[in-house]
């Protein structure tokens, strides 16, 4: 029997946010509502990060996903008024997306849920101090030669390239 502490209540609360929001995204006919449901869902995920003692990731989740990406979505939706009354819910590729999402579900079940399922998978008696990494640890990990400095540099290079690419695409060639 799961013990119903404040953490579990908060987890249920954020789960409702994340799953309900995700359901709203795929069922709502109005793109604007869909974007707002997406924000609700992302907010729920930020709550999970807080429960997992990763406040930095929670703040980044809100800042990047809600503050930048979702706002950009809404901005694009606002500029296209005709897309607020969608009627067709399925297009011709529905079976393809169904296959892909089923495969994703299978991968998640086998790769993430199975290893921690049942006895020996999770260890609730492990002291949380062994698990919790501070923001300082995260910062050090990103610039430490033994850890993630190469992925960090590569992804920043990718972002810079993407930014330059966007400027080139958006630029007026006539000048």
């Amino acid at each position: 029997m799961i013990e119903l502490g404040p953490q579990s209540v908060a987890f249920l609360f954020f789960s409702v946010f994340a799953l309900g929001g995700a359901l709203g995204v795929v069922t709502s006919r109005n793109l604007m509502h869909g974007a707002l449901y997406l924000i609700l869902s992302l907010f729920g995920v930020a709550g999970f990060f807080v429960l997992l003692s990763a406040p930095f990731l929670a703040a980044v989740q809100v800042l990047v996903y809600i503050g930048a990406i979702a706002i950009l979505f809404i901005f694009a939706v606002m500029l296209t008024r005709g897309m607020t009354r969608l009627t067709e819910t399925l297009n011709r590729q529905w079976w393809l997306s169904a296959v892909v999402s089923l495969m994703l579900l299978a991968v998640l079940l086998v790769g993430v849920i199975l290893p921690v399922w049942g006895e020996g998978g999770t260890n609730p008696n492990m002291p949380s101090t062994d698990l919790v990494a501070t923001t300082v640890d995260l910062g050090v990990a990103l610039v430490d030669g033994d850890q993630y400095v190469l992925p960090f540099l590569v992804s920043s290079l990718l972002l810079t390239a993407a930014m330059i690419g966007a400027i080139v695409v958006a630029r007026d060639d006539t000048e």
Binding site: I39, P55, I66, A70
Partner: peptide
């Protein structure tokens, strides 16, 4: 919060919304 400054920036972006 250990991320106070970042928290305030993140909350500020909700204002835009």
């Amino acid at each position: 919060l250990s991320i106070g400054v970042l928290y305030f920036v993140a909350i500020g972006s909700i204002g835009t919304l």
